[in-house]
């Protein structure tokens, strides 16, 4: 039995300790926001926060998570009352197919919690590990800028 703390709630799971966190979230906890993309840590669709840092949940065995704080997109509010970052993504219509968006939002959340005045270059390099195949990158960047303002900061122009 392994105890996980997800979005502030403690769960006790009877699963293999080497099970990737993503499987536990989706199959055992019915938290389906994080998506399975590549299973190799190369696409970012499964991104969640571990101790407030973004991580690929498809590659994190749950044995490594005892006593650590896991956050998923379900922890950022509800459809009726979304948090600042999901609300900004919605306002900018950043999702097309939407498969990458939960990961994009979680990585943005981590960035803006640490620094709500990042430069444009920091935003782009921070989001680089997450892929979007629809090509909504410019909307995603607009959503990040909107979210930064909503969180009391703002994305700064990068120096040339």
């Amino acid at each position: 039995m392994i105890t996980l703390t997800v979005n502030g709630t403690t769960h006790t799971l009877d699963v293999d300790p080497e099970t990737p966190l993503l499987y536990a979230l989706r199959n055992d906890l019915a938290l389906n926001g994080a998506k399975f993309g590549c299973g190799l840590g190369q696409c970012g669709a499964c991104t969640v926060l571990i101790d407030d840092r973004p991580a690929f949940s498809c590659l994190v065995p749950i044995a490594s998570l005892v006593g650590r704080k896991i956050r998923t997109i379900e922890g950022l509010g509800t459809a009726e009352q979304p948090g600042a970052v999901p609300a900004a993504f919605e306002a900018e219509q950043a999702a097309q197919c939407g498969y990458c968006i939960a990961g994009m939002i979680m990585r943005t959340q981590a960035l803006l919690e640490r620094n709500n005045r990042p430069t444009e270059a920091e935003v782009r390099s921070q989001l680089a590990p997450n892929l979007c195949r629809c090509g909504t990158h410019m909307r995603i960047l607009r959503a990040v800028r909107r979210a930064a303002v909503a969180m009391g900061g703002g994305v700064q122009e990068s120096s040339p």
Binding site: P17, E18, L59, P61, I62, A63
Partner: peptide, 14 residues
Amino acid sequence: PEGAVLFAGACANC
């Protein structure tokens, strides 16, 4: 043993 479990979950895929 802890290293083995972590390897199996995180590294073995590749």
